[in-house]
Write a protein that binds this DNA or RNA. Structure first.
Length: 272
DNA sequence: CACTATGTTTAGCG
DNA sequence: CCGCTAAACATAGT
């Protein structure tokens, strides 16, 4: 479920394993996830070391000693892993980087919507992919300037990576809940204080998620995400998870906004 | 079998 | 250009 907090967690994992290490081989189990052709990639990687990692929105970058970067996008089901011997390769490993010390770092992606490509700079990638400022960096003023005059619904705008990069479906629902804003509000009807609340909520939700390494079951009880029904570790035999964390008698409602599954508390987030 | 899914891109329509 | 919708991608899990 790679939204910004997952990708940041992956980046930290890759930073620990890869920075300072030399890549000795590129193993391609399924070229479908390659957006740069295999030979070009192999030439750029073999014998080169990783000098740093970066993240922008949902994208992770491995900087190489050549100055080029390997850009990783995880699609809907991408993940990372590490193993040493082939029988231990995680299921759905599509590509693996073999390191000089024998460790292998896996790009795992069951649905194969993820992509790996070689890029010359983060700035160039950001421009090509039309990515706005990272959701952790955007200010309340920038957010209001970008959205305050738009007539579209606030939820699809928050999902738009060209406005701010990193927010995905579940996080936008959580942000809107924490800010007490209904997802179908027109952006140009939000008040100054609602934009402030949205910005504060973006920071709260992303920083909380990163702190818990994007493990949703460990999020605070005040978070709406526990109402999504994915939480298999919730107290068994109860259906508490369908109620609002604030109004414990009010059921969270599911609908579709901009063709995305959307959860709201009708009392916290009054419909427009 | 039917249905849903975290992301992105593109085509089409008004 | 704006806004919105549907579809496509490829596959797993319930």
């Amino acid at each position: 479920m790679p939204e910004l907090p997952e990708v940041e967690t992956y980046r930290r994992f890759l930073d620990d394993l890869l920075v300072g290490q030399t890549i000795v081989a590129l193993e391609v189990k399924d070229a479908h996830v390659l957006a740069t052709d295999e030979d070009t990639l192999r030439n750029a990687l073999n014998g080169h070391s990783v000098t740093a990692t970066h993240r922008l929105g949902k994208n992770c970058f491995l900087k190489l000693d050549s100055g080029q970067l390997l850009a990783l996008h995880f699609g809907m089901t991408g993940d990372v892993g590490a193993y040493r011997d082939e029988p231990d390769a995680p299921r759905f490993t599509r590509v693996a980087l073999h390191l000089a010390d024998g460790l292998r770092v896996a790009f795992i992606d069951p649905r194969k919507f993820g992509r790996i490509r070689l890029v010359d700079s983060v700035a160039r990638y950001q421009k090509d992919k039309k990515l706005g400022p990272d959701a952790l960096d955007i200010t309340a003023q920038q957010l209001q300037a970008a959205l305050g005059h738009r007539k579209s619904l606030i939820k699809p705008l928050l999902l738009d990576q060209s406005i701010t990069a990193g927010l995905g479906n579940w996080i936008v629902d959580e942000v809107l809940f924490q800010a007490r804003v209904h997802p179908e509000r027109r952006a140009d009807t939000l008040t100054d204080s609602e934009f402030e609340a949205l910005h504060t909520a973006v920071q709260l939700v992303l920083n909380t998620a990163i702190r818990h390494e994007a493990t949703y079951s460990r999020f605070p009880a005040s978070f709406l995400i526990h109402a999504r029904g994915w939480d298999t570790s919730a107290t068994p035999g109860t259906d508490n998870h369908i109620f609002c964390p604030v109004h414990t008698k009010t059921k969270v409602e599911k609908s579709y906004v901009g063709a995305r599954a959307t959860y709201v508390c009708p009392r916290c987030q009054p419909a427009p």
